Simulated assay, not measured.
Amino acid sequence: MKDWKFCPRCGDRILLPRREHEPRKGSWDTVGGFLSGAETAEDNLVREELEEIGCELPPDVEIVLSEENSEYAWFPLDDRPPLAFADCEAAVAASAALTSRTGSA
């Protein structure tokens, strides 16, 4: 878990679900949500993965979407669609830049 950044990644790819509800219905988004109580970012990611896509990654497991998302896709970090929220876009862009500089996830 310690090497995870903030969202499901596999090398230079990122898993993005498409939002089923407003705000920004139909936009691509990262897996995640609000922290609950004293929850760590890593614990939040595991909980949200289970809630939103029905599994903990690695990416070779079956993904079952919740009612919050209409579809999902893996995208190259450097060729992804625009994201629903600016803070997610900034975080993914920073992660992609770091990956391209270091050659690692």
Rank of each mutant, 00 (worst) to 15 (best):
D78W: 04
E20C: 11
R47S: 08
G33F: 05
A97R: 12
W4V: 12
S70Q: 06
M1Y: 05
E49S: 13
E42N: 13
I63F: 13
E89A: 15
P81Y: 00
I53G: 03
G26S: 08
T40W: 10
R47F: 07
G103C: 07
E48N: 10
L45Y: 05
P8C: 06
L77C: 05
T99C: 15
P8H: 02
P81R: 01
A38Q: 14
C7Y: 15
A84C: 02
A93Q: 02
R9M: 00
G26I: 00
D12I: 11
R13L: 12
S70A: 09
A96T: 10
V31W: 03
L57N: 13
T102P: 05
V31C: 07
I53A: 04
V31E: 01
D43V: 11
L15R: 08
C55W: 03
K2T: 05
G11S: 12
P17K: 02
S70H: 04
K2A: 12
R24H: 12
D12P: 02
A105Y: 00
P8R: 05
E39G: 02
I53W: 09
A73E: 13
L98R: 14
P17T: 00
V92C: 07
F6L: 08
F34Q: 14
M1V: 13
S104N: 09
D79S: 04
E89D: 09
V31A: 00
L77V: 14
A91N: 02
G103F: 06
E48H: 14
T99W: 07
S100E: 09
G33K: 08
L15W: 06
T40K: 15
E48I: 02
L16C: 01
V92L: 02
F6A: 13
A91D: 11
P58G: 01
L35T: 08
R19E: 01
A41L: 00
P82H: 05
D29S: 13
L50P: 07
R13V: 04
R47P: 03
E22M: 13
R18F: 02
E22D: 11
A96H: 01
W28P: 08
A93L: 04
T99F: 11
L35Q: 12
R47K: 11
E67D: 14
V64A: 00
G11W: 00
D29G: 12
R9L: 13
D79I: 06
H21W: 09
L65W: 02
S66R: 11
C88L: 15
C7G: 10
T30C: 09
A84E: 03
V61L: 15
P59F: 09
K5Q: 07
E22F: 04
A90N: 08
C55K: 07
A86S: 10
G103V: 04
E67V: 15
A73G: 11
I63Y: 06
M1Q: 08
L45G: 06
F85V: 01
R24Q: 14
R9N: 04
P23F: 01
P17L: 00
R19I: 12
T40N: 11
M1A: 10
V92K: 05
P76E: 05
E68K: 15
G103Y: 03
G103A: 14
Y72G: 06
E56P: 05
R13F: 05
G37D: 15
P81G: 06
V61I: 09
E39C: 03
W74V: 07
E62C: 03
P81I: 00
G33Y: 11
W74I: 08
E89F: 03
E71F: 01
D78I: 08
